[in-house]
Design a protein around this nucleic acid. Structure first.
Lengths: 189, 189
DNA sequence: GCCGTCATTTGCCATTTGGCAAAAAGCGCG
DNA sequence: CGCGCTTTTTGCCAAATGGCAAATGACGGC
């Protein structure tokens, strides 16, 4: 629970009573490897906070290829924040890459916090913006880099993730085939 | 001015009095081609709304290459919203690609609107999120596509921009050399 | 320990893209 | 019209990456 508090306090201040209230709304969810947290086409009903494990966000392009668009690891929210705000179905799948342990809020409880905690919706907005900016900062430089550089920067920036992600997912995220990624690894050794 | 109102009303409702107040805070800025709206390392002091022209966001990578990270055209905000919110220097340049005409708010006036218009900061947060999501949606699929596809999707999605952007900027945005882009164009004809 | 299954590596060759430099095209200006 | 400047197109060859299939490796169940 402390991990969640530390995370939330980045976005505003909360007193003990407010923290207790937030804690009282959470349940724990154990998600086994490969299970979906959210499926494309469904409207999200929960907000998760990842305590242990790695998840990925993926979709299928018009050729039917499965594309991994992002990874999430510990101490981060797992949520379709846009879908929650506007009640839209998710365009993407959210899947457990390893066994995962999460704290879970129902959409209702999450929204209700806005009525009981002054500044909560402001905090959620800040989380959303930070979340989006981080994704953008991660992906944006990749377009201009070659595959080797993309791989090296990934393992530098996310060393704790790299060895928990199957090569095929990582290759897809980096925009190359798994053979190419395998060759790149060999060249680096 | 109507363009600005139309833009703002996407993010919340405003009555005539509020619109008049907003209008009263704007000035017009004419920015000639190649001039900078904001330079990397400087803290933004203005928020712009682009009425006419095309601008680009660019930076220099560690090899000294100039990289165009994004383009902005009419009916969009031109602002370092993160820099404005946290008073941080901009990591990137914002430059006029063509002669541009903008409506300009000073940072002070922009912030003051939060005190006089109920819901203004909420609207700004929504703008920020929409802005970030659009960028992400534009860039995110590019990593998994080949250069020809990236180019074709760009001209489909932004037909009004393509013919106003020099080939070198567009190539940089697409993550390829200008020779390659030139060849891709030839193959498509 | 062996087998089946899935993940990763490798080989071979085709295609794409980069790097560099020269040629051609576009454009403002006298 | 012709000149100088910038932008775009080409040619040539090297390097990176893809596509496909086979080989190898990892790992759990029996």
């Amino acid at each position: 629970m402390d991990e969640l508090f530390t995370y939330l306090l980045q976005f505003g201040s909360l007193n003990q009573q407010q923290l207790d209230l937030i804690a009282s709304k959470t349940t724990t969810l154990l998600l086994p490897k490969d299970a979906y947290f959210l499926e494309a086409g469904h409207v999200a009903r929960h907000v998760g906070f990842l305590l242990e494990g790695v998840m990925r966000i993926c979709y299928y392009n018009n050729k039917g290829d499965e594309i991994t668009r992002n990874f999430v690891d510990e101490q981060h929210l797992v949520a379709d924040l846009r879908g929650l705000e506007y009640s839209l179905p998710s365009p993407e799948y959210v899947q457990a890459v390893t066994d995962c342990r999460l704290l879970l809020f129902s959409k209702r409880d999450w929204d209700d916090l806005a009525h009981t905690i002054v500044g909560w919706s402001e905090m959620v907005h800040k989380m959303t913006a930070k979340h989006l900016r981080e994704k953008l900062a991660r992906i944006s430089p990749m377009v201009a880099q070659d595959a080797t550089t993309r791989y090296q920067e990934f393992i530098e920036n996310y060393p704790r993730m790299a060895n928990r992600i199957p090569l095929s997912y990582l290759a897809s995220f980096l925009g190359i085939t798994q053979s190419s990624l395998s060759r790149i690894r060999k060249n680096i050794r």
